[in-house]
Amino acid sequence: MRIVDGEGWRDVDLDGLRVGVWMPAAEAVRIVPAVTARARSVKVFQDAPVWVAPVPVRIPTVARLHLRLTVRDTWTRRLLTPGRFGGRDVIVSRSYYRALQRSNCKLITWPVYAVVTQGVRTAEGIEHRVDVLITPDPVRKALAA
């Protein structure tokens, strides 16, 4: 498995590869649509969700409505709803939720507890195999060390 940082993925040919995205949600929102368009399959490891709206607004109600209208599955909507300790920031994206619902994309909200040679292990006891893991630079450096 190759580990690339949050920006380095653009230089990698993702065609036909299984890709994991383990980034803070605000950054995952920016890159997941482009990654799902290129990779064979994508697993998005989400630590905590953020509010996402299609237009630049600061009101979570708009983001809540966007989530309600764009994501059909009730359980997935629950997983994408920030909790009461979550931030109030709203990230702008029109394509994030659509990308998450593509058939080649899977949202994983189980806590990540280890990165192993072939993938990512999460606390529900499963090893998720990927060819490329996109993660922030400090995490990448810590793993390399």
């Binding site: 009730t74 359980w75 997935t76 499963i126 090893e127 195999r129």
Partner: peptide
């Protein structure tokens, strides 16, 4: 809801 389908006996996904 969809969580009921999340159980798996496969150690590797």
């Amino acid at each position: 809801q969809a969580w009921v389908d999340e159980v798996t006996h496969e150690p590797i996904a």
